[in-house]
Design a protein around this nucleic acid. Structure first.
Length: 281
DNA sequence: AAGACAGACAACCGCAACTGC
DNA sequence: GGCAGTTGCGGTTGTCTGTCT
């Protein structure tokens, strides 16, 4: 609180990135790896704030990013994930390999919310709209954005604060994981990102995630980690190093089903119910 | 052809969570 | 436990581009 925004320094570039800036950033990260965003611009010779560099890398320059052409299957998965998770774009993006939270957020705001509205579904709650689909507004654009919430009666929907997934590994690529589940736990395996350094040994690590007791807080926690012993002993997982092909409708379908399973695990109904409620309310 | 408008999406901002001291 | 620095997330805004008049 009260801290000055990191981009407030005068003399720093803002706005669209130039190819040269992209090249500098990419080259630097390929050599030195991600992180240290605050000092990165200076070391990379960029007149940008660290935040801007991080955003540019995460959303556009990372080698594993897939741009454009959201498939109908992905489209469908996004809608259904949104109905489960709400505006947790990073969680949704994490289940769509190669897609970023920003891209999904934009896609939602520009395409999907309209599409749902036209289908008579409230894009926020995924309930059926009682009124006819909103007519196309006339010509006000940006300025009108803020007005939208003023005039109309707002339905208050309680959404719990987003829970931050505990990262037990310092560098887990969010967008390149395949989930495999059994009935007791959710596990995932991931091929570790290779951007740290061209010289860096490419290592492949099994990543696991699951739901467990959070004894400290008396609740449930979701965790990610590098090893299966992070999951309870009964956990099993399949080794899966292959890339995820999101064109594969079956894979996306499976991901969604697995989420549903996660929310319906029978072993700890009370805790999981509350967990599920926290996501769904 | 030119201006107005709307759509799309890249980028920014503020804040919360995390981390290390 | 408190504080300050860093990172990540979601909401919002700015700008570019295509389409319409």
């Amino acid at each position: 609180m009260g801290r000055a925004p990191c981009c407030s320094k005068v003399g720093l570039h803002r706005g669209p990135w130039t190819p040269r800036e992209d090249a500098l950033l990419t080259k630097y990260i390929q050599t030195h790896g991600e992180g240290q965003w605050r000092s990165l611009p200076k070391r990379a010779g960029l007149l940008r704030c660290g935040k801007s560099c991080r955003l540019r890398w995460m959303n556009y320059l990372r080698p594993d990013i897939k741009r454009g052409n959201i498939t109908p299957e992905e489209d469908d998965l996004i809608v259904r994930m949104h109905s489960l998770l709400g505006n947790r774009w990073s969680l949704i993006a994490g289940r769509l390999p190669g897609r970023t939270d920003n891209e999904i957020k934009n896609y939602w705001n520009t395409h999907l919310s309209k599409k749902l509205r036209n289908q008579g579904t409230d894009p926020k709650t995924h309930d059926k709209l009682t009124e006819a689909p909103e007519k196309k507004k006339g010509k006000k654009k940006n300025k009108q954005k803020n007005e939208n919430n003023k005039g109309s009666e707002k339905t208050l929907v309680y959404l719990p604060k987003p829970i931050r997934v505990k990262a037990l590994s310092s560098c887990i690529p969010r967008t390149d994981s395949t989930l495999t589940l059994n009935s007791n736990s959710a596990t995932a395996s991931t091929s570790e990102e290779k951007v740290q350094s061209p010289e860096a040994e490419v290592k492949e690590v099994n990543m696991v995630w699951g739901v467990g007791d959070d004894a400290d807080n008396g609740g449930i926690e979701i965790f990610f980690g590098e090893d299966h012993d992070l999951v309870n002993n009964t956990a099993s997982y399949e080794e899966c190093y292959s890339d995820v092909h999101t064109d594969d409708h079956g894979t996306l379908e499976k991901l969604y089903e697995e989420y549903l399973q996660l929310l319906n695990v029978e072993e700890k109904p009370d805790e999981l119910d509350s967990f599920a409620q926290s996501l769904l309310v």
